[in-house]
Simulated scan of single mutants.
Amino acid sequence: MIKKMSCPICGTQVEYTIENSPNWYRDPSLPVYRIDCHDKCRRYWLEAIPDPHPYIDPSILAFLDSIDDEQRTFISESTQRVCDNDCWLIYDKSGLQNLANDWQYAKAAVMLYGSNNVSFQVSGAGFDATNRLFFVDTEDARFTMRLHQIGASVHKIRSEVYWLDTLWEKARIKTLSPVPGCNGEMVQGISPNSLPSRYVTAYNWIPGETFNTLSAEEKTPELIRSLGIMVGRMHRMSETLELPQWFTRPRYDIDWLNPQVEEALGLDYMDYSAEELAKLTSLPARFSQLVAEQGEGRNVFGLVHLDLAPHNIVISEGQPCPIDVVHLGFGYYLLDILSLSGHLDENEQTIFFQGYQEIRSLPTDYRQQFALFEDMGIL
């Protein structure tokens, strides 16, 4: 039954219903309040206490009562942006607290870049709560700003910056251009109001549209070909790139895969089909066989973006620009190739592969090898 109440975040009159948590939530047994705040926050969910009649967790309401109007507005606008990107948000007190803390981090971080009259907002796409991305607007420019997760290695972050710089310098691939702070450093450290120390990086804005928003007519053969060329250049650079000693990124190898499979098999809420379960349990052996056959030489295994999905490629002045490199690491090049080509139709794939092979060759049996990496998508 639909009822009415004041939105706990923004205070406007809203509709609400009481529902069960989705299976993927941290505790599917908990009821949730679905809040339909059409004009401001859009739609979100709040954790509820189950007995005897479900009611919103009082700690959530107490926390929202404790913050000021500026923080409330930030949470409301952030919720709206995430909902507008077709994401689900279920808030508990911790999630709201983290968002309010990130507002404090962002407010302190923008001051490190020496701009006046700065405004910022959360990027709704993806809504990575541990590596929050902000859009920052100044009087004369726009930037993106990444608030890295607590405890992140500074060398790991510096490695992202190094790779982005090198993409342009050595491969002539336009991508995020790191921006130094007032002290000249690309990686800034902040700890506002005694919050734990975190690192921040900022990047020049890339004007354009993400590939996933283009119409079919805009996805021309030449553009598809340029996607293949871009990925080919990335991998060719990786084959020969000399890395500094401090360069640190994860390896997507068998030691990474095994725990991923174990975790996936232990998820009670996942209702795998018999076919999916068979594929999942076979992944370690199949991956080990790939390693035995292909090895991990730099001709097949090197730095990969790992998330070259269409929403992570901006088309700017007709050229594809990869963004969002938080998953950058060492893995098989086919991971990148599949992550992008898997979103193309058969004709587009042919053009994409032709573009890639203008830069570097593909294994003769690459389509057969794709089957393994496609099945890894279950994870």
Rank of each mutant, 00 (worst) to 15 (best):
I2E: 09
W24P: 04
E139Q: 04
K93M: 11
R34P: 00
D51T: 06
G228L: 09
M186S: 04
D36L: 14
I313Y: 08
Q188D: 12
A309Q: 14
I35S: 15
P22L: 06
F330K: 05
G95W: 00
L306I: 13
D165Y: 10
Q71P: 00
C87A: 11
Y269T: 11
N183D: 15
P178Q: 11
P58S: 11
P31C: 08
R26Y: 09
P284C: 12
V179Y: 07
P54Y: 02
V187T: 14
P178L: 09
G297V: 15
L265V: 10
L362P: 02
T281Q: 11
L223G: 12
G331Q: 09
A109W: 00
W88E: 05
P244N: 15
H305W: 07
A278H: 08
S316P: 13
F370E: 14
Q13L: 09
R236L: 15
T213V: 13
S341T: 06
H155E: 10
A62Q: 10
V122S: 09
M5Y: 03
I157K: 01
H53G: 05
R43W: 06
F301S: 01
A106T: 11
R172E: 14
A106K: 01
R236H: 07
R233V: 06
D92Q: 05
E169Y: 08
I56E: 11
S6Q: 03
T201F: 00
G95L: 08
G95Q: 02
W246M: 11
W163L: 02
D39Q: 14
L241Q: 09
K170G: 03
Q149A: 10
D128T: 12
R286A: 15
N20T: 11
P54L: 04
P284F: 08
V261S: 02
S341F: 04
E70T: 12
N204L: 07
C37D: 08
A108D: 02
W205Q: 08
T138N: 02
A125I: 14
N117H: 14
Q80N: 15
P363F: 03
I90L: 12
P320E: 01
A292C: 07
S123H: 07
K107P: 01
I9P: 01
A216T: 05
D255G: 00
R142C: 11
D137A: 06
G181R: 01
F120T: 13
N131H: 13
Q245P: 00
